[in-house]
Structures are given as structure tokens and as C-alpha cells.
């Protein structure tokens, strides 16, 4: 339950999974696979019954086999018996991944980070149901990661790496005492931009802790 007082500590949303299947369609380019989505798919599958499928649009040629199998499960059973249906369409999306949930009332959501926010909002423990100061810190890491790790100059990348390293010297996770959406998004950004191998020691140690968790390990085994 949420508190609306000035010192309120929770920002929880009502549970959004109604009756029937929640149908989510995501488009992404095979050149830039949305790794945060793959990890969140693993988290979602622990809490909900999820059916995931991927399709290759005719405009794209040669999606690597491993990328097709990463997002494919639940071949058996009726689609409508599941709570969440995730459909990943591999196609060329120049402005980055897009997501549609309800085509009648919604305009497309752009950006891997915003898609990740949506997935995390469906879960209990990674994002919006945490303390409001923690949620704000998570948003801050996501924003920094977009601006500096993914789109930044080499100088900005190095600066972000230093702030990650000093932060992770003091704590095991980026926000709070457990994995959160911040860890997932920053982990994905480091993998996508191949900055993990050259990372300083505290960042490497944290990457290893992530990689040892089942949700990340499963995704890595497909890459």
C-alpha cells in the first residue's frame, strides 16, 4: 500500500496484471540486442507465467541463431493460459527498440531503458516498489549510463567508469542491498559497449557477482 505523505517511502503502483494475457510486442535490431530485456525476461519468468516468442521481420537477414533461441519458450500450452506474452520482432529500428502494449490507447515507447522500466514495474522488487529515494537513485544511474556509457565521449565513459568503481568499492550493488534495475541497465550497457574487460577492479568484481546470478548467467550462456 502506498503512503502519500511528504515523507512517504513507497511509490507502489497498483498491480497491473489484470485477467487474461498481457500482450507486449517489442521491436529491436539484431545489431544491438536489448540485453536488459533478456535479463528482465528471466526475472519476470520467476514471478509470472510468461510465454516468449521471437520473429524475424523479412527486412532483416541473418539473425544469429543464439539470439533467436534466447527469447523463445513455452512452445506447449495455449497462449491465453499465460499471464504475460512477450513477442520480440527482429527488425531494423534506427531509433532503437520500441514497445507496444495496447495499440488503441498508446503511442510507441522508445528506448531500451524505458522498455526495461516497464518490465521492472511489473515486478515486485527491482524498481518502482522500492523506497522513493532508491527509485530516484536508480533513475539517476540509468540516465548516466545512457548519457555517458552508451552515448558519451571516451572522456565521459572513463568518468562514469571511475564513479562506478568508487561507488562499488563501498557497496555490493548500485542501489540498496540487492540487485535492482540500475544493475541490470548498467550491466547491459557495459556488455553492449564491450567495456567490461577493461573495467577497473571493483566494477569487475560486481560484474562477476551479476554474472553468477541465474538471471544473468542464463542470458550470458546464449551470447
Amino acid at each position: 500500500s502506498s503512503s502519500s505523505s511528504v515523507t512517504g517511502t513507497t511509490t507502489s503502483l497498483p498491480n497491473n496484471l489484470g485477467d487474461g494475457l498481457l500482450d507486449v510486442v517489442i521491436s529491436a535490431s539484431p545489431e544491438n540486442p536489448p540485453l536488459s530485456l533478456f535479463v528482465l525476461h528471466q526475472f519476470l519468468s520467476k514471478q509470472y507465467s510468461v510465454i516468449a516468442k521471437s520473429h524475424i521481420h523479412s527486412s532483416v537477414k541473418g539473425v544469429p541463431e543464439n539470439l533467436c533461441t534466447i527469447f523463445h519458450n513455452g512452445g506447449s500450452g495455449a497462449r491465453m493460459d499465460h499471464q504475460i506474452g512477450l513477442t520480440l520482432m527482429w527488425k531494423n529500428v534506427p531509433l532503437g527498440p520500441t514497445m507496444m502494449v495496447s495499440a488503441n490507447t498508446q503511442s510507441p515507447v522508445h528506448g531500451e531503458a524505458n522498455i526495461a522500466r516497464y518490465m521492472a514495474r511489473l515486478l515486485n522488487q527491482l524498481y518502482e516498489n522500492l523506497d522513493i529515494t532508491m527509485v530516484t537513485e536508480i533513475d539517476n544511474w540509468i540516465e548516466q549510463s545512457n548519457k555517458q556509457l552508451i552515448n558519451g565521449s571516451s572522456k565521459e565513459k572513463a568518468a562514469m567508469m571511475r564513479s562506478l568503481n568508487s561507488h562499488l568499492g563501498r557497496s555490493d550493488w548500485l542501489v540498496g542491498s540487492d540487485v535492482s534495475l540500475a544493475d541490470i541497465c548498467v550491466w547491459a550497457a557495459l556488455q553492449q559497449t564491450k567495456q567490461g574487460d577493461s573495467a577497473p577492479s571493483n566494477v569487475k568484481k560486481w560484474l562477476k557477482v551479476c554474472n553468477d546470478r541465474n538471471e544473468f548467467k542464463t542470458v550470458l550462456s546464449h551470447l
Binding site: 503502483l13 497491473n16 503511442s107 515507447v109 522508445h110
Partner: peptide
């Protein structure tokens, strides 16, 4: 917003 998708649409426009 008052649902996960509304909140995410709002995030999209903030980025935009």
C-alpha cells in the same frame, strides 16, 4: 500516470 504503461509512456516523453 496511474499504471505501469502510462508511467512508461510518460518516461518516453520525458526522454523525447
Amino acid at each position: 500516470g496511474s499504471s505501469a504503461i502510462e508511467r512508461t509512456e510518460i518516461d518516453h516523453w520525458l526522454d523525447f
